[in-house]
Write a protein that binds this DNA or RNA. Structure first.
Lengths: 230, 230
DNA sequence: ACGGCGCTTCGGTGCAGCCCGAAGGATGGA
DNA sequence: TCCATCCTTCGGGCTGCACCGAAGCGCCGT
């Protein structure tokens, strides 16, 4: 199997709308049951079962049996990065932000794999950029000296890893609703994690959307100088 | 069109072996004619024409008319990164290096989009790592202070971009033949570019393979301490 | 032990799309 | 002007695969 063969094999799996729906739903890192994925993909259980078997066989998904349920999640962070790369590369030409089907909550704030996206995520990136704490470009990002000090005070885990970086620290990730970058990578995950810890945001059930709490509204304003509408 | 829809649409295009072959051949950034791509994809001209039209329509390829020829190339660097991400994510489990079909030249040294891969690319990464000039991890890389000084002496363009980084500077890219990382990103491109300038390597016709010249054999040994077999 | 539930396997149907040969513009050279 | 080359459009054959209903297997709670 050569380069092109692997690309074709993988892309063929992702090219079926039902399977693409499943992968997209799993992008935030959660594990879902076969039935939930069947519903998300708008297909019957037998059809979903077949798809899930093929995705697992190909190493795109990992499966864990638990009682009578079978939980599926992305097989590795690399799979998530691949999906992000596909979405980033196929970003439609500039224009007014897409209207999401019933997705106002998603546009406000949501998780993107393991970091924050939506207006909250983009606003966070803007706030950090404006203060010179991070520098974001098309394909990479850097944290300034001021930024490291700030993040440490904020309580985000920015300690370097023992044996060199094993995951990109600061990486821009194009936001599908806002069409502007937010912060991904280990920093993005650390920021999101710390915001959950502080109770500034909370996950909505069965959705990638997150809700900004009252404490969050105050905190984002005081610490990052962000004004959150609503 | 939502996230999953865009993934599905793009992946469906890439999921056809003929189209995947075309994209893979174009990964090194060259522009090829429709006929050349038909040959690379092992299909007849009419079939290739249809595929190319769809890929161009979808924004994955860009087309330039020139005389009676039509040259196709990747529409943007982002498309190349997407293809790399797919290959990286679908890396088969560890094992003995794959035997390439008649690809000894490719295994020795080749271009991977715009940087060097194969034993030469991996060797270069190893040499720089061993000397503490760069630190490579799973998902990111850094150039040390010594590394910056070394690269400047070598003549690779490592000047920071005017308004922040617009492309990731140092990034590991998993090598398909060697199963180990080589250096991609702006640094990878700069290194490859400088090696071509110095006449250490030369492109093989109609292939991603590159040939190491006699000057290169001496240069890689003297400057990077690399011993190149053959 | 038994029924309920989640998931899988099996068989048949139907559609989407890949593929090529032949014919039709378009371009450049003789 | 005429031909050769490159590319595209058109039409028909064919394969592959997504999809679902029904039936089978394993696990849990009662």
């Amino acid at each position: 199997m050569n380069d092109a063969g692997r690309i074709a094999a993988t892309a063929a799996l992702l090219g079926e709308p039902a399977r693409a729906n499943m992968m997209a739903v799993l992008m935030d890192g959660r594990a879902l049951t076969a039935k939930e994925l069947a519903f998300a993909a708008h297909v019957a259980a037998p059809t979903a079962s077949g798809h899930l078997a093929r995705l697992t066989e190909a190493g795109l998904l990992a499966m864990r049996k638990q009682g009578r349920h079978r939980y599926f999640c992305l097989a590795s962070p690399g799979i998530g990065r691949m999906l992000e790369a596909i979405m980033a590369a196929t970003q439609p030409v500039a224009g007014p932000p897409t209207t999401w089907r019933g997705g106002e909550a998603l546009r406000t704030a949501r998780t993107c794999y393991d970091h924050l996206a939506g207006r909250l995520g983009v606003g966070l990136a803007d706030a950090l950029s404006a203060r010179g704490l991070v520098v974001l470009g098309e394909d990479g990002g850097e944290v300034t000296a001021d930024g490291h000090a700030f993040l440490q005070r904020f309580g985000a885990d920015t300690a370097p890893r023992p044996r060199g970086p094993t995951r990109l620290f600061c990486r821009p990730c194009l936001d599908w609703s806002e069409r502007r970058p937010h912060i991904a990578g280990r920093l993005g995950a650390a920021l999101a994690c710390r915001c959950f810890e502080l109770g500034w945001i909370a996950r909505e059930r069965d959705s990638r959307a997150v809700r900004i709490t009252q404490a969050g509204r105050i905190g984002f304003g005081a610490v990052f100088g962000m004004e959150l509408a609503g």
